[in-house]
Every structure is written in structure tokens, then in C-alpha cells.
Write a protein that binds this DNA or RNA. Structure first.
Lengths: 285, 285
DNA sequence: CATCTTTATGAAATTTTCTTACAAAAGAGG
DNA sequence: CCTCTTTTGTAAGAAAATTTCATAAAGATG
């Protein structure tokens, strides 16, 4: 597991803290940025506790003392809270909504990075390595993700295709069998068509992989599921970011496959890269 | 431009510093991490100068004093370390390469967030709002981005389409005219076909928007360019992250258009959302 | 429910760290 | 070589943080 953010650690520990520690925690969580520039005396006063209590609080969270704690807090602020979810408001102008959308995306990526199951990733890489054929299926926005996956996995020198057409998906699912991997991408994991096709593929003995929401019908039916828990879209204006998380996970899978293939495979990748060179204007440097 | 990293600022100022300030700078740059956990006395000794000299040094760089300086340095270190390319090594296992790929993506997003021109974003939103038709064009991996964009902009109730077929692109570009927006997505901005089609569209009086690398042939030819500077792919194993940055920028643009349309437009978006409900299994909560 | 034990908390003293005031040294300009 | 400016350090003082210790609160035990 990745190192957790100090702010989250404090928030998590909140119920375990005693009275004065809890007071300190609340003051810090309320305005962590301010806390980093306060003296121990100021913070103690704000929390209504004594200075040694603040000091003990710091040591409880593995800091050498108050200054060290402030340092750690400042670092945590840079990496974490900076990317806090801030909703887009109707009155926002470019300078407001642009960073908000970036931050929200970054935030979701950071969350999934810390939560994704490495075991599952490994299992999926296994399946992909062993596959005789790979089909990437998705509808709507997930169709684009599937298309991108095709483009990526095409390089591995095995039959890959993507389909965003339900009838095609259905036909292929029914003709597949052992050795075929059907990779389903779905934000909700509840689209009836998708679940039905996945069931069909599974019934025919194919391997079904689901990149989707945990505990969804698609997740339940899949041979291996890569759970992606991205918060519900609470804001009317905030775009859906699960697509992006899905894309990055496919990057991870592709990297996993490349690494498994070993260094002998690199020349092949080089060859594909080179094949594109002639299509481009040369960059003068 | 966003605030520059403190470490870089110090390095840049190096020639302007006087003797003792320069000594302090060298010690800090040699091991900034250590500096954040030193006392002013320790640092002064390490640099071979007096404590007030260190203090003056800090104030020169807009810190309130030494502790404040350490805080700022610590923050700079965090954002700096994140931008360090942690390449995927051939020997990496899942637990290593997974966070590396996420981090690399996050870093690129954070970089573009800080560098993207809000003025340009606004200009593009203007063009999109005024457009009678919008075409999203891309090849290869950028084709998926274009497809995603179509899916997104379709909701705005105006004729949008995406094309990843060069011949189709060419035909459409030649038939377009005033009021038509051709939106080109390209990682390098140097693919000959793409640049030619863009030139064709421009020659026919259409608006050409380029989401691409700065100073590339495509960027030069476009009516408005959204520059995306994503570091070159140095690592064989590290996937290309510009696609993802492009997607997020399209999210930003779509949000910009939605906000411009104003609150009267929201019911329309709701209607589209609702139309998908019947295709899904209901979530029991 | 009284008493003992443990734990939690703060006052005060101590120590460490930082800042300021001022003076000495170094350098620039005439 | 003097004067003025800039740079640097010494030493004093101020501020901040930590430790010690005493007391209060909470909990356990008979």
C-alpha cells in the first residue's frame, strides 16, 4: 500500500483520539494550511489546550516534535489537499473551472492508485498473456476507452479488436471459447446489454474481464474484476472521470504485459514505432 | 505562469548571490531534504557562515524567516520529487510499475494544469459556442480522444462528429466553410496527413483548432492552438500520457461550453442522462 | 463507594532555536 | 587614502518548543 496522506491519517484516527488530542485534530483539519504557519502556542490556544498537548499530539503521529510535524503537514498539503474535490459552480470562469477539473481528475487517479488491487492486476495480466484473442468491449464513453485499448494492445502481435456495436459484441461473444479474453469496460457495470453479452461470453467458456464498478452486475459475473471506485457524479458540471481512470489502468495492464514478455520483445515494439516515422514531418532541433 | 519551484529559483539566482549567501545556497541545493530538517545553527555551520547570514538568505527568497523558509523548501521538494521521472524498469513487478504509471500520468496532468493558457481555453470555448458544426479529427490513439469528444459534445444539441478515417477527414475538410469548426487532436502535431487536412480546412474558411504540441506544424497552422507540452517518451515501458491530458482538456472545454450556455441548458442535459436510465439494472441501496 | 491505579492534562522551568541590533570588516568610488 | 556602502559576524534578546513534574480526571478493584 502506498504511503497515506497525513491529513487522511489524522482524519482516520479521529475516533481513537482522546479529548485534547481530538481538539487539536479538529483545528488542524479545519485549516491545515494555517496550522503549518502557526506556532505551537497559537495552535494550542486555538484548540483550547496546552502546548504540551499539541506536542504530544505531534509525536503520536510519528513526528519528532511540533516543527517536524508542521513540515510533514506542509508536504501532505502539497501532494494531497491541493487536489481536493472542488465542485464547479455556475458562476465559475475559466481560471476557476480549469484547475478544478484537473484537480478532480488527479484526485481520482491518486485514489485509485492507492486502492487498486495489485493481485488483480497481476491476474488480469496473466489472462492477457495467455489469451489467443482479446476483445475490448465498451459502449458510449467506454467505447472510446475500448478503442484506445485496441490501439495499445495491437502492438503485442496477437489478434485484438474493439467493438462498440452491441450486435457485433453479441455475435463475437457467442462464437468465442477457451483461450479468448473478453474485456468489458463499463463505468456503472449495470448496462443491461453489456452484462448480457458478458454472460454470453462466460457461458461459452471464454475468460471475462470486467473493468468496472465494484459489486456491480458486471463485476459479479466476470472471471476477474478490476474494481474502480470513482465517486458518483454529484456535480452537474463536473465531467465523468472514470474513463480516464480506466485508460490509465489499461496503460498499467499493457505495461505489465510488455514486462512479462521480456526484453526480447522490445525490438518488435521499436519496429512499430519506426513504422510511423515516415508519416511525420521531421522535427528540426 | 504558475509559481516556480523554490529549488529552481535558488539555482537561477545563484550568480546574483554574494559570498556567504552563495555558500548557503550550495549547501541547501546539495541536500535540500536535509536542509528542511536542520536548525539554523546546523545549516550555518555546514555552510561556514553565521546564523544571521542564513536568516538573511531566507528573507531574500521571500520567506518570513528560517522556519518559514524550511516550510517552503519542503513543499517545493514534494512537488519536485513528483515530477522526477520514475521510469519503469525491466525488473519491476506490479507493485512497482502500477504506482509509477499513475504518478507519471498525475504529474503530467499537474504540469499541464499549471501551464495551460486560460485565455486560449476561453478562445476555443468561444469558437465552439459559435460553431454551426463541429468535427473532431484524430488518428491512432488520438482517434479515441476524438471519439470521446464526440460523445461529450453530442449533448450540446449541435451537429458533432468524429472521424479517424483520413479520406473522410479530407472530404469533410474540403466541403466545410465559415461556421464550421474542425478540431484536430494530435500528440506530435507532425503527422503529415493531419497537417494537410488541417490546411485544407483552413483554406476553405473553416475554423481550425489544434490540441497538440506547441510550435508543431499543426500548431502553427491552426486558428487557435491549445498547447500541450508533455515530456518526450524517454522510457520504453512508460505509456504515452498525452492522450489522457487531451481528454481532460476536452472535459474542460465541454464544461466551459456548458457554463456559457447557462442554467437554462441543464434540463436538456438531464434529459439525456435520463434517457440512459432504462438501459441499466437498477442499483439497490 | 472508597481506594488504588492508570491515564490525561497543564503550569512552569528549561532548553533550543531564531531574530534583531549593532559593530566590524570588506569593498567601491572618488 | 579617505568616505560611503555593502557585507558579514558577534552577542544579546526574543520567541518557540520541549521536558519535567504536579495535579486532575477517569477507570479499575475489592
Amino acid at each position: 500500500m502506498h504511503s497515506q496522506n497525513l491529513i487522511n491519517i489524522i482524519a482516520d484516527e479521529l475516533p481513537e483520539l482522546n479529548k485534547s488530542e481530538s481538539k487539536v485534530a479538529h483545528v488542524i483539519l479545519a485549516d491545515p494550511d494555517r496550522a503549518t504557519s502557526s506556532s505551537i502556542a497559537a495552535l494550542a490556544k486555538a484548540a483550547g489546550v496546552s502546548e504540551p498537548s499539541v506536542n504530544r499530539f505531534c509525536k503520536r503521529f510519528n513526528a519528532a516534535g511540533f516543527p517536524d510535524f508542521k513540515l510533514k503537514l506542509a508536504k501532505a498539503l502539497v501532494s494531497g489537499v491541493r487536489f481536493v474535490n472542488r465542485n464547479v459552480d455556475p458562476g465559475d470562469d475559466v481560471t476557476s473551472y480549469t484547475p478544478k477539473i484537473f484537480d478532480s481528475t488527479i484526485n481520482n487517479l491518486a485514489m485509485v492508485r492507492d486502492r487498486i488491487s495489485h493481485t488483480r492486476v497481476n491476474q488480469v495480466v496473466d489472462k492477457l498473456i495467455q489469451a489467443k484473442r482479446i476483445y475490448f468491449f465498451g459502449l458510449g464513453a467506454s467505447g472510446s476507452v475500448a478503442r484506445d485499448a485496441e490501439n495499445k494492445f495491437f502492438r503485442f502481435n496477437l489478434p485484438v479488436s474493439f467493438h462498440d456495436d452491441v450486435l457485433m459484441q453479441r455475435m463475437l461473444a457467442s462464437t468465442g471459447g477457451t483461450g479468448d479474453v473478453f474485456f468489458f469496460i463499463s463505468h456503472t457495470g449495470r448496462t443491461k446489454e453489456v452484462v448480457e453479452v458478458a454472460a454470453l461470453a462466460k457461458a461459452n467458456g471464454s475468460t471475462v474481464i470486467g473493468l468496472t464498478a465494484p459489486d456491480s452486475p458486471l463485476a459479479v459475473i466476470s472471471s476477474v474484476t478490476l474494481d474502480v471506485e470513482v465517486p458518483e457524479n454529484t456535480d452537474e458540471y463536473m465531467p465523468m472521470t472514470s474513463r480516464i481512470v480506466h485508460l490509465v489502468i489499461l496503460d498499467v495492464l499493457a505495461t505489465g504485459v510488455t514486462l512479462r514478455r521480456g526484453p526480447d520483445f522490445l525490438p518488435h515494439l521499436e519496429k512499430i514505432k519506426d513504422s510511423l516515422k515516415s508519416t511525420r514531418y521531421i522535427k528540426e532541433t
